[in-house]
């Protein structure tokens, strides 16, 4: 099955490999990872834990250099350049000593935008992010879902061509999570950005994505690409669509195989580490 099609992509990772030297042994985290993301599409990566998804993210973001392989943006090779990506992790990483308004402008501030102008640009968005009236609150005064929305606002305020989201809703409860998914789709459909989304949750991946890449157990590589042919805009009803259910079944099998392999790799370590 051809994993990469032959047209120009927003982001293309070509035969990315990553090896670490650790405790005398060489660990191969990623081996020949190839994937591409079309402009303005929403692409998810699912895979067993420890398969190197987050490492792949850091490489795509230009934070770390791969052992081999290349990253292309708009068909051009990029080398250790991070201005094209905005990034969000499972932890909201809001600065506890800053009020929400000053938290969301962090990226703009670093980019040299004057504080006053950055604040003005951010203020206009608080309503859409469901944070109206919380501009001058500290992060600890907000719920988990609100903090993630603030973190997402910080990410999207940057206006970078590519948005990387690494399990942004991983720490939320199931109800908040499903609300956040719907809300994220609304924001994304209104903004037209290219998004790469990492998750463990297959339903989340189907609900949000145009395409889903399934990663293998370590050493991580792309095992399959699945197109999600559900119509947009999607809603809670999409979850019971026959196509949704069929996709879920297909993906569950793919991911389960890899999870079992990852589990066997860890072997007795699972219990020794517990």
């Amino acid at each position: 099955m051809p994993i990469v099609e032959n047209h120009r992509a927003k982001l293309r990772l070509e035969r990315i490999g990553m090896e670490f030297e650790g405790a005398g042994a060489r660990v191969v985290a990623l081996a020949d990872v190839t994937m591409e993301v079309r402009e303005n599409s929403f692409v998810s990566i699912v895979g067993p834990s420890g398969c190197g998804k987050s490492t792949l993210f850091s490489i795509a973001a230009g934070i770390i250099e791969p052992s081999y392989g290349e990253v292309y943006l708009d068909g051009k090779r990029v080398e250790r350049r991070t201005e094209y990506v905005s990034y969000m992790l499972q932890k909201d990483l809001l600065l506890p000593w800053r009020m929400i308004l000053d938290n969301v402008i962090l990226g703009l501030e670093i980019g040299g935008v004057p504080k006053r102008e950055a604040r003005e640009r951010a203020r206009a968005l608080f309503g859409r992010y469901g944070l109206q009236g919380f501009e001058n609150h500290y992060p600890h005064q907000l719920s988990g879902g609100m903090r993630q929305r603030a973190a997402l606002m910080r990410t999207l305020l940057l206006d970078r061509p590519l948005v990387l989201l690494d399990e942004p809703f991983g720490a939320l409860d199931a109800l908040t999570r499903s609300l956040m998914q719907e809300w994220l789709l609304q924001i994304w459909e209104g903004s037209q950005r290219t998004v790469v989304f990492i998750t463990h949750d297959i339903e989340e991946a189907i609900f949000l994505s145009d395409q889903i890449y399934v990663m293998s157990a370590r050493p991580g590589h792309m095992k399959a690409r699945v197109d999600v042919n559900l119509p947009r805009p999607r809603s809670i009803a999409s979850h019971t669509d026959a196509r949704f259910v069929a996709l879920k079944d297909h993906l569950l099998h793919l991911v389960r195989e890899e999870s079992l392999r990852a589990f066997e790799q860890q072997g007795s370590g699972v219990f020794a580490g517990a």
């Binding site: 850091s58 973001a61 230009g62 934070i63 991070t82 201005e83 990506v85 905005s86 990034y87 992790l89 932890k91 990483l93 600065l95 962090l106 990226g107 670093i110 980019g111 940057l158």
Partner: peptide, 13 residues
């Protein structure tokens, strides 16, 4: 927080 430093580096700080 290491992740915070990573985030800052992603923001090109």
């Amino acid at each position: 927080d290491r992740d915070l430093v990573t985030l800052m580096r992603a923001l090109n700080a």
